[in-house]
């Protein structure tokens, strides 16, 4: 399973994105606001989930700002950190 697939599964199952399946999620759709419709408090949960599933801590605001743009951006961030 690729990081992108795993991420989509986590988003749907652990953030309770009802009415969505992982296949429905566009890689480039914004995670917050329009797009997946996550809110600022979901960001809290997402940070915790990334730590739980990938062992990564989003350390600062700049990292978060870049990584939380879309599934593709978050996936690239995770891969970059894991392989870097």
């Amino acid at each position: 399973m690729t990081t992108t697939e795993k991420l989509k599964k986590i988003l749907v199952e652990e953030l309770n994105l009802e009415e969505l399946t992982p296949a429905d999620i566009d890689d480039d759709a914004p995670l917050f606001g329009e797009g997946l419709g996550l809110d600022s408090l979901d960001a809290v949960e997402l940070v915790v989930l990334i730590q739980k599933h990938f062992g990564l801590e989003i350390k600062d605001m700049d990292e978060g700002r870049t990584a939380f743009q879309s599934v593709r951006a978050l996936s690239a961030y995770i891969d970059g950190r894991l392989n870097g």
């Binding site: 917050f32 809110d39 600022s40 408090l41 960001a43 809290v44 940070v47 801590e57 989003i58 350390k59 600062d60 605001m61 978060g64 700002r65 939380f68």
Partner: peptide, 14 residues
């Protein structure tokens, strides 16, 4: 601020 300041709040708590 960005995402309601939640990332900053998390950082401070961590």
């Amino acid at each position: 601020g960005f995402l309601g300041g939640t990332l900053e709040m998390l950082q401070r708590l961590k």
